[in-house]
Amino acid sequence: MDMPIRSTGDVKVGELTNALGFLLRLAQLQSFDDFFSGNGPRGVKPGEFSVLWVIGQNPGIRQSVLGQRLMIKRAHMTKLIRAFEDNGLVSRRIPDEDRRAVELTLTAKGEGEIARTAPGFFAYEEKSGAPLTSKERSQLVSLLRKFVGIEEEDRP
């Protein structure tokens, strides 16, 4: 008779140890768990910060392009942008040449929110990734960028 499994370290996952999707999902869950455990910056959610950050980097970006780039479903993007607008963080503009499009820009309040939260967010991201060494973390980031098709951009 097999012994009952009493700890997560005893759970066998077999061939899943080589399944990229499985490993990426566990890594995401572990990363979010650490972020929300108190180790991450306060008052900011990673997804919301990412959307505001990208709008700030691309003033006037079309909402549809932003959603596609960040792989956010249209309905969720609409709800998120509406909440940002209601909170005075983002302004929306409908261009005359394409009445179906929506262009997004951070408001002064949105720029202030990014200025306030970005240092903590990026400082957390720089130190996340334990138990990897700094070199291993850089290698993983580089490989993930390649995997998802994001070119390394020049930093200001």
Rank of each mutant, 00 (worst) to 15 (best):
M1C: 08
P4Y: 05
P4E: 11
R6G: 04
R6N: 06
S7V: 08
S7C: 03
G9D: 15
D10Q: 11
K12Q: 07
T17L: 09
N18M: 04
N18P: 01
A19L: 05
R25Y: 10
L26Y: 07
L26V: 14
A27S: 15
Q28A: 14
Q28K: 09
Q28I: 03
L29S: 12
L29N: 11
D33W: 03
D33V: 04
D34Y: 00
F35R: 00
F36A: 04
F36S: 01
S37M: 01
G38L: 05
N39L: 01
R42N: 09
V44H: 00
V44R: 02
P46T: 03
F49S: 06
S50F: 00
V51E: 04
I55C: 02
G60F: 09
Q63W: 02
S64N: 10
S64W: 02
L66Q: 11
L66K: 09
L70Y: 09
R74C: 01
M77L: 15
T78W: 04
T78P: 00
K79N: 12
F84G: 01
N87Y: 06
G88K: 08
L89E: 06
S91T: 14
R92I: 15
I94T: 15
I94W: 01
P95Q: 07
R100M: 13
V102F: 06
V102T: 15
V102S: 09
E103F: 02
E103L: 12
E103V: 11
T105N: 05
T105E: 13
L106Y: 08
A108E: 14
G110P: 06
G112A: 12
I114F: 00
I114P: 01
R116C: 04
P119L: 09
G120C: 02
F121T: 12
S128C: 03
G129M: 05
A130K: 13
P131T: 14
P131Q: 05
P131K: 12
T133R: 08
S134G: 07
E136F: 03
S138R: 15
Q139N: 07
L140G: 00
L140N: 00
R145H: 10
K146S: 12
F147I: 06
V148D: 11
V148G: 02
V148Q: 02
I150Q: 14
E151G: 02
R155M: 13
R155D: 09
P156R: 07
